[in-house]
Simulated assay, not measured.
Amino acid sequence: MTGPGSGYAVGWGTLSLINAGLAQGKNRRGLNWFLLALILGPVATLLIVLLDAKD
């Protein structure tokens, strides 16, 4: 990817992967959080961090 927005897209995608890993660590569905993070980005990260782990 090249162009003015390529770094932004790579960073957003990386954040989505990190969110999926965080969600799985809290016994939540990683794929759902990955997709949510593609839409919400850093807001999804905040939600994952603030939510308690699922039993």
Rank of each mutant, 00 (worst) to 15 (best):
23 A>I: 01
4 P>F: 07
8 Y>L: 06
25 G>Q: 00
39 I>G: 09
13 G>T: 10
20 A>C: 12
37 A>T: 13
31 L>H: 05
48 I>F: 01
47 L>M: 15
48 I>S: 01
24 Q>I: 10
42 P>K: 04
39 I>Q: 10
16 S>E: 03
1 M>P: 12
14 T>A: 11
14 T>E: 14
6 S>G: 12
49 V>D: 04
48 I>A: 00
1 M>C: 14
55 D>A: 14
7 G>D: 15
20 A>P: 09
40 L>Y: 02
14 T>M: 12
38 L>F: 04
19 N>W: 01
34 F>H: 05
3 G>H: 11
46 L>R: 05
48 I>G: 00
7 G>T: 08
20 A>M: 15
10 V>Y: 06
45 T>R: 03
5 G>K: 06
53 A>K: 13
53 A>L: 07
9 A>N: 11
41 G>A: 05
40 L>E: 02
6 S>Q: 09
54 K>T: 15
8 Y>H: 03
32 N>E: 15
38 L>I: 10
18 I>H: 09
1 M>Q: 10
41 G>P: 05
16 S>W: 00
25 G>F: 00
29 R>H: 13
12 W>V: 03
28 R>E: 12
25 G>L: 03
4 P>I: 12
11 G>R: 11
42 P>T: 03
22 L>V: 04
33 W>Y: 04
55 D>T: 13
6 S>F: 13
16 S>R: 01
37 A>V: 01
43 V>G: 03
26 K>F: 09
16 S>M: 04
6 S>H: 10
16 S>G: 15
23 A>W: 00
29 R>Q: 14
41 G>K: 02
35 L>V: 13
38 L>G: 09
29 R>T: 10
22 L>S: 02
5 G>Q: 06
52 D>T: 06
25 G>N: 08
50 L>A: 09
18 I>C: 08
4 P>K: 10
23 A>D: 01
26 K>L: 12
13 G>P: 03
35 L>S: 08
5 G>N: 10
43 V>A: 12
11 G>T: 08
3 G>Y: 07
43 V>K: 03
46 L>I: 11
25 G>T: 01
45 T>Y: 07
41 G>I: 00
22 L>W: 01
30 G>S: 12
26 K>P: 10
7 G>R: 09
7 G>I: 06
48 I>M: 00
43 V>Q: 02
10 V>I: 13
11 G>W: 01
32 N>I: 05
47 L>V: 15
47 L>I: 15
32 N>F: 09
31 L>P: 06
8 Y>Q: 09
53 A>V: 09
23 A>S: 00
24 Q>W: 00
39 I>Y: 08
43 V>W: 08
19 N>A: 13
50 L>R: 08
25 G>P: 02
42 P>L: 05
4 P>Q: 12
